[in-house]
């Protein structure tokens, strides 16, 4: 009992000075906060006025696949050309195309061509869309290095990812269950693979969805029966890339940069920049830089296929 009493006493002694202390402290804090808020306000208005005067800022929006590439290109471009400003935003190809339609972006990055419906909407708004291909992206179909299967046809891939083929022995491998990995449905790569490999059919619900390309490589490298698809540059030595046939097994093509460039490798897609012909003067210098030797070198460094 005496212990508890002592505690109570302790508290009663401390409450008074403590309270005053807190009050004082808070008062100072609030003043500081107010000052900070004011300072922030000032700064943000300055920022806004700054971007208004600088009319040469090129805004680029769209595909997440092209995001890292565009960022590197923009950095190098801004280093090389003093006074130039480029701002890059991701969000997906569809987002970028909508932004171009609304006139809220100068350039739209897109990892697919315009759909018929989108072309019509541009025509309705009387926007003359120009398209530039800045590089190619090829998808590798990867399996675990221990897997004996070395090649597959498009039809076999379709059946694997739609759940019709579930065992490796059906495509010439061991008697083992196939574990198919895909990207999440928000990814442009997911749509591309669905359209060009799965003949627009839906993925089987048993396919595992991974949030990132790196996660697919990691999972395929540690799962013996795994199969997945990733950008060419992501296929490291910890996984094995398959040769793919788009002519019912007559010829199998190895996924290489050369193959994607001369279009013998079938699972490749162009990376587009779309822009309004009216703003050509504004964006031309940046696009020319990307198409230059220095710009194309960056394309290769990031892991895409240069156009030349």
């Amino acid at each position: 009992m005496s212990g508890i009493k002592a505690v109570v006493l302790d508290f009663s002694f401390q409450t008074h000075p403590l309270k005053i202390h807190i009050l004082k402290n808070n008062w100072i804090k609030i003043t500081v906060l107010c000052l900070m808020a004011m300072a922030c306000n000032n700064q943000s208005t300055q920022d806004k006025s700054g971007s208004h005067t600088n009319a040469t800022t090129i805004s680029v929006k769209g595909s997440d696949t092209e995001l890292p590439l565009s960022q590197r290109e923009a950095e190098e471009y801004m280093n090389a050309t003093p006074g130039a400003a480029v701002s890059i935003v991701g969000g997906g190809s569809g987002t970028g195309i909508t932004a171009l339609l609304d006139g809220t972006t100068d350039i739209c990055m897109s990892s697919r061509d315009l759909k018929t419906g989108e072309k019509l909407r541009f025509r309705e708004k009387k926007i003359d869309v120009k398209a530039v291909i800045i590089g190619y992206d090829a998808l590798s179909v990867i399996v675990n290095p221990k897997n004996q299967v070395r090649q597959l046809t498009r039809e076999q891939l379709e059946k694997i990812f739609t759940g019709e083929i579930t065992n490796w022995k059906e495509v010439g491998g061991k008697d083992a269950k196939i574990v198919a990995y895909s990207r999440e449905s928000s990814s442009g790569t997911y749509e591309f693979f669905k359209e060009h490999v799965l003949d627009k059919k839906n993925y089987s619900p048993t396919v595992l969805n991974m949030p990132a390309t790196g996660a697919i490589v990691q999972s395929v490298s540690q799962t013996e029966g795994a199969i997945g698809y990733v950008g060419l540059a992501y296929a490291t030595s910890s996984v094995k890339s398959l040769n793919i046939s788009y002519d019912q097994g007559k010829t199998y093509v190895e996924p290489t940069i050369e193959g994607a460039k001369d279009k013998t490798y079938p699972i490749a897609r162009p990376l587009f920049y779309f822009y309004d012909a009216k703003s050509e003067v504004k964006v031309k210098a940046f696009i020319d830089y990307i198409l230059s030797d220095a710009g194309q070198k960056i394309v290769a460094e990031i892991g895409f296929v240069p156009i030349k």
Partner: peptide, 24 residues
């Protein structure tokens, strides 16, 4: 693994609600 299949055992991929919202 995020496969939207009916879970029948612990040793099988599943997809949860928060993961679905975040991913989609």
């Amino acid at each position: 693994g995020n496969s939207a299949i009916m879970p029948t055992s612990l040793l099988q991929p599943v997809r949860t609600i928060p993961a679905t919202i975040a991913a989609e």
